[in-house]
């Protein structure tokens, strides 16, 4: 009994006061900055997921492994800014010299009825469990996305959005489509993590089927490997309520 009391007292109040404005540890690789004169060809050769090309750094493919930064710290740096989510695939490509990424990344708004209540249904389609654990962490005492009215629900019939994690294996394709069909409208698709957005490190595998993510309209992309809970919460709340 006393151990429980002591444990509870030491636990205190654990919620991060404002997840949207939280300060994350400096070591965290967040929004990348490419210098204007970066040698993209050399960087592209070292990237394990082909995220760097002539147009810049594709956040939808980036797994934030830091190889490019270690190769050429002058050209690539990752700021400790978790506001990575964007509402279109084109916005995820960071051009050399681009400075304004988080300011313009999410401009869509959900209809008014979702301002204070948003129900998510997660389908893990061959995710490695890191993205799933981070999504589960969003409802824990620290991040507590329930305070914004966001919750993960048990049935697709209760949900407003499907949040997909994982690159979509061929064995999960059918289940994914039937879950999507069971969600009543208006419904939205959210892709969380590099694997969901582009196949990530599994993009070249022949056991992956990308048609679901490429054919349907996607409302929100949350980059990361895995997507950090603060990124997820920031993306969702910006969709629901704006800045």
């Amino acid at each position: 009994m006393f151990e429980l009391l002591k444990a509870r007292i030491l636990h205190g109040y654990q919620a991060i006061p404002d997840p949207l404005k939280a300060k994350i540890n400096q070591a965290f690789p967040g929004v990348p900055r490419l210098s204007a004169g970066a040698d993209l060809a050399a960087l592209a050769k070292c990237c394990p997921v082909n995220a760097i090309s002539d147009s810049g750094l594709d956040l939808g493919r980036c797994i934030f492994c830091g190889k490019c930064q270690r190769l050429d710290p002058e050209a690539v740096s990752f700021e400790a800014d978790f506001r990575l989510a964007a509402d279109s695939r084109e916005k995820l490509i960071i051009r050399p010299g681009q400075q304004d990424y988080p300011e313009t990344s999410i401009q869509t708004r959900l209809p008014r009825q979702f301002r204070r209540s948003f129900a998510l249904r997660n389908v893990s389609a061959a995710g490695c469990n890191a993205c799933e654990l981070e999504l589960g962490a969003c409802s824990n005492v620290n991040f507590d996305m329930g305070r914004y009215g966001i919750e993960v629900v048990a049935s697709p019939r209760h949900a407003d959005a499907l949040i997909l994690t994982g690159p979509i294996s061929q064995n999960m394709e059918a289940a994914l489509y039937s879950t999507w069909d069971a969600i009543p409208g208006p419904r939205f698709l959210i892709l969380s993590g590099a694997c969901a957005i582009s196949g990530g490190i599994f993009a070249e595998s022949d056991k992956i089927r990308r048609s679901f993510a490429s054919k349907l309209t996607v409302t929100l992309y949350i980059p990361g490997c895995p997507a950090h809970p603060l990124s997820i919460i920031h993306g969702l709340v910006t969709l629901m309520r704006g800045r």
Partner: peptide, 29 residues
């Protein structure tokens, strides 16, 4: 078997020394 991503085939391609990011994704936890 629903999570089968064909990871072994990707390991066996190309240079075995460059696969650390792949190894981290075998099981993310």
């Amino acid at each position: 078997g629903y999570q089968h991503r064909g990871i072994i085939r990707i390991f066996e391609q190309d240079d075995i020394r460059d696969k650390v990011s792949l190894a981290e994704c075998i099981a993310g936890d």
